[in-house]
Simulated scan of single mutants.
Amino acid sequence: MEKSSNLIINGSGSYPGGQYRKISIRGEGTIVNNVDCSSFHVYGTSEACENVKTRSAKILGEAEVKGSMEAEEALVMGTMTVGGKAHLKKMKIFGLLEADDRLVGESAVIKGSISVKGDVEYEKFDSSGGFEIKGLLSADTIKIILSFGESTAEEIGGGKISVKRGSWFIPFTNIPLSKRAGFLDAKVIEGDEVYLENTKAAVVRGNSVKIGPGCEIGLVEYREDLIHDPSATIKTKTKV
């Protein structure tokens, strides 16, 4: 089948996989086989029993992919669950993404939350939401704004790592409701340049390390320089 037909689901039912130009689900739809399409847009509820490959994924409702998911661009404003590997090249998460395997791509913007049981690998990782990563979070550039709750990762590794506390603001004003809105917990954080706030870690390693307010660090190993806020707790500091 060539990519010339569309699959539009407004009611409910089960449909075959294959190659489609456009898939749009506004009702409740189940796709029973592998699917390859140009766009995969879900406004209602969908279940893909195998793998999904698409250029554009837009999830405003609820989508469950039991196999792997591959998309050039992915926008999640609702909820998406992926049972296999998720390769989302350019990803923006305003809702919730859950992945039972690895999550990989080029650029990730997290304003909602993600929960990943494996590793997360991106070139650029930018989060002002929340995340729970059971494996390694790695990226060339990692920028984390701790806006709410607790974000966790087993390990974090990158070139430039910046973790700053965020604030909830009174609507339509610049008046913060809290100066300690979020917290990061990781066993190991390692990068070339590391700046941390509101972070608890057993080990922090880097060339240039700056430990800001609200941090509790077991061991800091640095090669060039270490700067730390007087209020931060560091048990051991070692120049290597």
Rank of each mutant, 00 (worst) to 15 (best):
E193Q: 11
S127F: 00
I170W: 09
K117Y: 02
D225G: 13
V203W: 01
I189Y: 04
D101N: 10
P213T: 15
E221D: 11
E98K: 15
K66T: 06
H228T: 07
H228M: 11
S46V: 03
K53P: 02
V240H: 12
G78D: 04
G166D: 01
K134L: 08
E193S: 14
Y222N: 03
S231A: 14
K124N: 11
F40Y: 12
P176W: 05
Y20R: 04
A153T: 07
K164F: 06
I189K: 09
K160S: 15
E150F: 08
F169I: 14
G27S: 02
F131E: 04
F169R: 10
G218T: 07
I59M: 05
G84A: 08
V203M: 03
A201Q: 06
V32R: 12
H41S: 15
L96W: 02
I227W: 01
G206R: 07
I114D: 08
A48Y: 15
T199N: 03
Y195I: 03
G67L: 06
S208H: 12
I156Y: 07
N6A: 11
S147V: 05
G182T: 03
G166A: 01
C49E: 13
S138R: 09
E197M: 00
L184M: 02
K134T: 09
R26S: 13
Y222M: 00
I8K: 07
P171R: 04
G18C: 02
V32S: 13
N10G: 11
T79Y: 10
I217E: 00
D229H: 14
S5L: 11
R180I: 00
A63R: 00
G84C: 08
G214C: 06
E106A: 12
M80C: 12
S38F: 12
S4P: 01
G13H: 06
K210H: 10
D101L: 01
L219I: 08
D126L: 10
D126W: 00
K160H: 12
K200M: 10
S68G: 15
I211Y: 02
I9M: 06
E224Q: 13
K200D: 08
K111A: 09
L219A: 04
G44K: 05
I133Q: 05
N33W: 05
K124M: 02
E221A: 01
K143A: 13
D101E: 13
R165I: 11
R102N: 14
S115C: 10
G17F: 02
K179S: 14
V204C: 05
L137K: 06
I25K: 05
H87M: 14
N198Y: 14
A139D: 04
R21W: 03
Y122E: 00
D140R: 11
L196R: 04
T236L: 05
T199K: 05
I156L: 03
E47F: 11
N33E: 15
S147M: 10
E150S: 14
T81D: 07
C215P: 04
V76W: 09
S151R: 05
F169C: 06
E98T: 12
A202F: 09
G78M: 02
Y43D: 10
E155K: 14
E70G: 14
P176E: 02
H87G: 12
F172C: 08
I211H: 05
E190Q: 15
K58G: 15
G29L: 02
I23M: 08
I217W: 00
A57P: 09
T173N: 05
L60C: 13
V116W: 02
G129K: 03
G118F: 06
K235N: 10
T152S: 14
K89M: 08
I175D: 08
K124W: 00
R26F: 06
F94V: 09
